[in-house]
Design a protein around this nucleic acid. Sequence first.
DNA 1: GGAACCTGTATGATCCATAATACAGCTTCG
DNA 2: CGAAGCTGTATTATGGATCATACAGGTTCC
Lengths: 289, 289
Amino acid sequence: MKSSVEPLKARRIYLLLRDRIIAGDLPPGERLPGEPALAAEHAVSRVTVRRALDLLEKEGLVQRKPGSGTFVHDSRAVRPIVADLSNVLSHLIDMGRSTDVKLLSFGYVAPPEAIAESLGLKPGERVQRSVRVRLIDGEPFSYLTTHVPEWLGLTYSEAELAARPLLELIERSGVKTERATQAINATLAGPEPAAALDLEIGSPLLTLTRIVHDPSGRGVEHLHALYRPDRYSFHMDLVRIGDDGERRWSPALGRPRASEIAKAEKTKADKNKAGEKPTRGSRAIKQRS
Amino acid sequence: MKSSVEPLKARRIYLLLRDRIIAGDLPPGERLPGEPALAAEHAVSRVTVRRALDLLEKEGLVQRKPGSGTFVHDSRAVRPIVADLSNVLSHLIDMGRSTDVKLLSFGYVAPPEAIAESLGLKPGERVQRSVRVRLIDGEPFSYLTTHVPEWLGLTYSEAELAARPLLELIERSGVKTERATQAINATLAGPEPAAALDLEIGSPLLTLTRIVHDPSGRGVEHLHALYRPDRYSFHMDLVRIGDDGERRWSPALGRPRASEIAKAEKTKADKNKAGEKPTRGSRAIKQRS
DNA sequence: GGAACCTGTATGATCCATAATACAGCTTCG
DNA sequence: CGAAGCTGTATTATGGATCATACAGGTTCC
């Protein structure tokens, strides 16, 4: 009766360094402490430190130079996709990037209770279940599982689903899609999503669950999407509205600011040369044990 | 030469079952396949299956009955908090739940480059850095790291920060907060957040990064928030707008629909009694430790 | 009651992540 | 150049996770 399943030490160190890099504590271009130093600092062997660095290198967060050191990789090779709230990728096309879809699974099944209930199905009613993967420039970034009532799914073919957006097929069938509710959350990659997204099991994933209703309130689509956080994230602009007693944020409507996003990415990329490591402020929290 | 850090087998099976339970594939009250069956299915030993089930049981997702079986726990003990886009928890108060804040760290430091740049600071300018944990009914659910320019941070005290919302303090100082941009993503828990949120290292977390600007475009707050996905998620209602060539989703404004959320929670809670498997199972779970 | 399940528990063998150490080859810098 | 770093690689040893097996005790159902 003791420790439960503790993550591997290598993984723990990997996460620690990863957090410091992402938080900007270790700026791009900076040299990491040497492997012996890291090993001593975390009270592990150098082999374990190496395995942690292997993970960071595989993710492109770090670059190793034999004889010289290990450096935080500047100018992230893969720029993440940015989607606005409504999950529109319109500005992707502006950037000249191409998306593709691969259909992994297609069939008619009895739905899990939770989905049947969220779509408002009658007991025994079947659904069309499909699993797709979306790719950006050939790299997978999202894993989509959709459930559609059978009567609606029958209005299009498997080939059509593989070629066109599901929502377009639904609307083509004459169904009006007017309302939707969605929830954003996080989870860990299970075996299938991990394989499809080219990740290891246990990697973090961003999830989006959306239920689309027609004007009568009938559920027409249940979407469960998993996104690779390094290749996809949700962005939004907010404005402060309301009068004094009740000020709060509200999403700013209108086209997403592709220009601003691009600017932020660029400036982030080339700002590290005149810097001379000003005493590294946040070390205070580290030592705890 | 194979390596890569593969998660422990027990953890992998834990993740798999957990996903199936959360996805509703294994409905509440359902009996899981027996330990020998699971062991055979995943090609591991029964001991390993047991360790995975231990984790599920510790999280309250599953309940074991010696001699009988292992069952999916119905009526999740902790209901997740639901926030709308603007991250307002107003309906929490309606539900009679109380939130609290614990200040973990407070001080003035030299900011990481990424944060200095996103706030538009001059080189050498220092920032106030604070780390707080928010609790709901005594349980931690979010881990907030904020960076505020020094000139602004000096307008309030450490004690005030521990007691009042940061945005309120900022506006009290006379600064107008008008615009903000935010990004939602997912990550894994590093050591400090894991400890503060009562999680294991490597647990999935929902992240929110928000940068608040005043009307002149000057950055006044950089917020990095980590949320426990089992206790917090973002919800939003969408409406379909635009004319035919340019249909897309847009967030539905207006007050958050606490009523609808409550309804959804409730129906989810009691939809498994008139179910069509009166043979076994419903009676099985009655007693609760 | 009794057969057929189930979970709980114990045992010893095996495999793999980690530790400890040593050395090669490279880069940086005085 | 040469010392002092660094990464890359190999070695053996150890401990924990996992395996295979067996048995105890409870539940379900005939």
